[in-house]
Amino acid sequence: MSLGTHHGGRGGGVQEDVGEIVAVADRVRGAIETVIEGKPEVLRLALTVLLAEGHLLIEDVPGVGKTMLAKALGRAVDCSVQRVQFTPDLLPSDITGVSVYHQDRREFEFNPGPVFANIVLGDEINRASPKTQAALLECMAERQVSVDGQTRTLERPFMVVATQNPADMEGTYALPEAQRDRFMARVSVGYPAPQAELDMIDSHSSRSPLDGLAPVTSAAQIRDLADRVHSVHVAPGMRRYVVDLVNATRTAPELRLGASPRATLHLVRAARAYAALDGRHYVVPDDVQALAVPVLAHRLLPGPEAQMERLSPEQIVAKLVARLPVPGPQ
């Protein structure tokens, strides 16, 4: 159990600014929970990434509801959702779109690919060839598509939810670290609790639960909320705390590769959204601590000692967090 849940996650002074965020988030959460039960943390993280305008990497074994989560998120927010099934023979143009020559009108017409959507679900992203992966990842970073020399901007909100199977499974091309760095957070869904699995048998056997999921908010509202997240206050001490934490990953002897400056930006943005979801207009260390593993761990490469000791990057990050003093009174 993580922090905040004991008291319902409601705490510090709720301002009107963030009050709406909380209300909307609660609605979205409630909606998704009709589809995926017993994973509040995963949901919260997904909402955080959505509000922080980042991209989410869901990594887990097949069949635990990765795709279902992404679909439910897209359905709950009334916005366009596209799904791309990555396969080894998928071409870059299958993602970005292609210009087609219309004989009758004697002109090229751009057929936008699946990336032209608010939420793009990239299923099993590590099954595609690196070339195709690169095409998607360019869109993720630049939020624009260049086809035939013409640049097209993508619509906000734009969120890629990619799923991947653990790298050591058959027929996969592991994402290079440069591309993993573009995802704001990585999360694993995990197996459901026995009770949730029991309930699932009932609810999922007759019809797809997605059918009953009605949108509870709109793309415009999400855009508005994402703008408000930027106003969440990050105290100077908290900024230093984030930088110290990221620096600690660079100096930790267990790690071969530390987190990038982009990771620092991602962590601060995610922390702002996380705080806003909690109804706060300022970031506290708990936000950073809760986000450190999902935001940082997938960017890190463990060193040989850590591999020998079977220390995962997640464990190393947790260790660093447990040791770094939180910013005290100024």
Partner: peptide, 25 residues
């Protein structure tokens, strides 16, 4: 020192002023 105020409050509420026996984490 690495524990935030609310984490500290939670710990105190849950287990009182007990010595911490766990390792980092």
């Amino acid at each position: 020192l690495a524990e935030s105020p609310r984490a500290t409050a939670e710990r105190l509420a849950r287990s009182g002023p007990a010595p911490r026996t766990a390792e980092p984490g």
